[in-house]
Design a protein around this nucleic acid. Structure first.
Length: 567
RNA sequence: GCGCGCGUAGCUCAGUGGCAGAGCGUCGGUCUUCCAAACCGAAUGUCGCGGGUUCAAGUCCCGCCGCGCGCUCCA
């Protein structure tokens, strides 16, 4: 193609899209990676379908994970091959599982969160709690004249600067006494015939004047302005059986982890695994997110790839570090190798309740176009201590029967001459858990974002630079033109290899158009049969990233692909 | 959940009260000798959904749904 032709072609530079989420979403839809769920009915917020190419991409990701984690795991920090067992648990489980895990109960009722201190308050109990068990509220009440309820401004300012500062640091009155009280005075003077009652006064004292459009209500702990009331059960509910009663209520699992914990005993008893070992699972989970957003990044239905790795409590540090680094390197190995991937150790105040005492929590994060310059979580690696197994031991009534008996350790301690009593204390225990928990949909999205490469040299202005192992289609097998025996040779090659690789055969239209299509769906190689093939048994290999070509023997194509795609 | 913006063919968009359109892509044909060639032909629309105003609504009004952005949320 000449330079002037290029200007006229659809691939002229003005067609090169910026690497924005909008452009990525458009390509996903145009080429069949991701569609909106039930789109013909207007879609449904937070749910997405994978199309013909998307399902291949996501499957390649999951297959690579399963292969590298379950079937063919690496060596651990102790130099031994890692022991890993797979499971596939149901989405709906006995509801008691979610009581034990803490998902039911704590957050089931309309609840308000304090942005200042993070405290949760039941919405319907707020005023009761303020009246009966809020330290600052009790102290503040003493500053009002009991009978008249008159507002003594200097007295309240004094309180705000003294006791208030210690007891309710986030209360508007404490942060800015003059402005807050003038706000209240305006209200009192504005409607002298309808003086505010105590609740309204307190609302005024909790409201920064910036919020003059509506009154806030204070957190009983710190006085901060509470967020809106929300039912903090993010679990989807359903009913098992025809009778839709409270007793038949079940939940769609909000994480796959609990299925693993609930099966801990079964796996130990049926497979001869010994601590340290892991149980791995890939499966759907559901969270009724308040705000699904950012394409598939936060969906209400999503797929997790989780490992619960069970270890002796005293080896948490080394296993935590091992899994954190191993998982980070794994994401690198499948193509997220650049600056867009980072490993971030959590600060202490970010840690979940059970992880506070642990060896740490870290996130493997990717810089998505919609988070940039920030990062979004792909996978979390957490030391969950023995929290989950203890919870299930307690709630199931199994108690110590859920403990692991470490016979290997027993023998070792006996050899070291440790006292029998001490050995017995040590060798029956709840294993600690290192949990690498990855999002399959987030991983797929990161692969799509990473692959998206604007390039003025391509007809559509963009090509998808997938790692060959992840690419939905591994190669195109094409006759250069649709005559002179070329289609027959190409077809024979295709039939030979299609069982081993996902390939495309296409004899229609100009060769450039076929290459261009493969660029846009990220196919790393195209093999083309031309007029020389019949003479010398070679084909051309066209490389997606460089658009360069070389000739190889037609009998070498399978080996070439196997080597490039790797595993 | 709140606020702002957006929604017409697969994609990018035009159409500001009067016949539903273009380019690209897709498909078929002629052709072909390595990067979306050319030519000929074809298919493709609940104008996001529902209601209202009007002789007449893609266009004006209301409600809803979906998407994006900012708050909020993310155990």
């Amino acid at each position: 193609m000449t330079e002037s032709n290029k200007e006229a072609a659809p691939g002229n530079p003005s067609n090169v899209p910026a690497k924005t989420m909008e452009a990525i979403v458009a390509l996903c839809r145009r080429r069949g990676f991701v569609f909106q769920s039930s789109e013909i009915y207007g879609g449904i917020n937070g749910f997405w379908d994978y199309g013909p190419l998307g399902v291949e991409l996501k499957r390649n990701l999951k297959d690579a994970w399963w292969h590298d984690i379950v079937r063919c795991p690496a060596k651990g920090p102790d130099g031994n091959l890692i022991s890993m067992a797979g499971v596939d648990c149901t989405i709906i489980m006995n509801p008691k599982v979610w009581v034990a895990s803490g998902h039911v109960g704590t957050f089931a009722d309309p609840t308000r969160k304090c942005p200042g201190c993070g405290h949760f308050v039941r919405a319907d109990q707020l005023w009761d709690i303020l009246a009966t068990s809020s330290e600052w509220f009790a102290s503040l009440l003493q500053e009002f004249t009991p009978v008249t309820g008159e507002i003594d401004t200097p007295r309240l300012i004094k309180w705000a600067r003294g006791k208030g500062k210690k007891l309710a640091p986030n209360l508007a009155l404490v942060r800015d006494p003059e402005v807050t009280l003038s706000f209240l005075a305006t209200r009192v003077n504005g409607q002298p015939t309808a003086p505010p009652d105590l609740q309204e006064i307190v609302r005024h004292l909790a409201t920064s004047q910036l919020h003059a459009t509506g009154l806030q209500e204070p957190c009983p702990i710190c006085g901060g302005a509470l967020g809106e009331a929300k039912p903090f059960t993010l679990m989807f509910e359903s009913h098992a059986g025809l009778d839709k009663t409270e007793d038949s209520k079940v939940y769609l699992r909000p994480e796959t982890a609990q299925g693993i914990f609930a099966n801990f005993r079964n796996v130990v008893d049926s497979t001869r695994v010994k601590v340290p070992f892991g149980i791995a699972q890939i499966g759907k989970a559901f969270r009724n997110e308040v705000t699904p957003r950012n394409f598939t990044f936060r969906s209400r239905e999503f797929e997790q790839m989780e490992i619960e790795f069970f270890i002796r409590p005293d080896s948490a540090k080394e296993w935590y570090a091992f899994w954190r680094d191993a998982r980070f390197n794994w994401w690198k190995s499948i193509g997220l190798a650049g600056e867009n991937l980072q490993l971030r150790e959590h600060d202490r105040d970010e840690l979940s309740h059970y992880a506070k005492a642990g060896a740490g929590t870290s996130d493997i994060e990717y810089r998505f176009p919609f988070t940039a310059p920030g990062f979004g979580e792909l996978e979390g690696v957490a030391h969950r201590t023995d929290f989950d197994l203890r919870q299930h031991a307690e709630h199931s009534g199994l108690g110590d029967k859920l403990k692991y008996f470490d016979q290997e350790w027993q023998v070792k301690l006996q050899g070291e001459g440790v006292a029998k009593e001490e050995i017995n204390k040590k060798v029956k225990y709840f294993p600690h858990v290192i949990e690498p928990s990855a999002g399959a949909d987030r991983g797929t999205l990161a692969l799509l974002c990473e692959a998206f490469t604007p390039d003025a040299g391509r007809p559509s202005g963009v090509f998808m630079k997938f790692h060959p192992r992840m690419a939905p289609i591994k190669a195109g097998i094409y006759p250069l033109v649709n005559k002179d025996g070329m289609p027959e040779i190409a077809d024979k090659l295709y039939m030979e290899l299609r069982g081993k690789f996902n390939l495309e055969f296409d004899e229609k239209q100009a060769i450039g158009k076929r290459y261009a299509r493969m660029d846009e769906v990220g196919t790393p190689y195209c093999f083309t049969v031309d007029s020389d093939t019949a003479k010398d048994q070679t084909v051309t290999v066209r490389d997606r990233d460089t658009a360069s070509q070389q000739r190889i023997g037609i009998d070498k194509v399978g080996a070439f692909l196997a080597e490039k795609i790797g595993g």
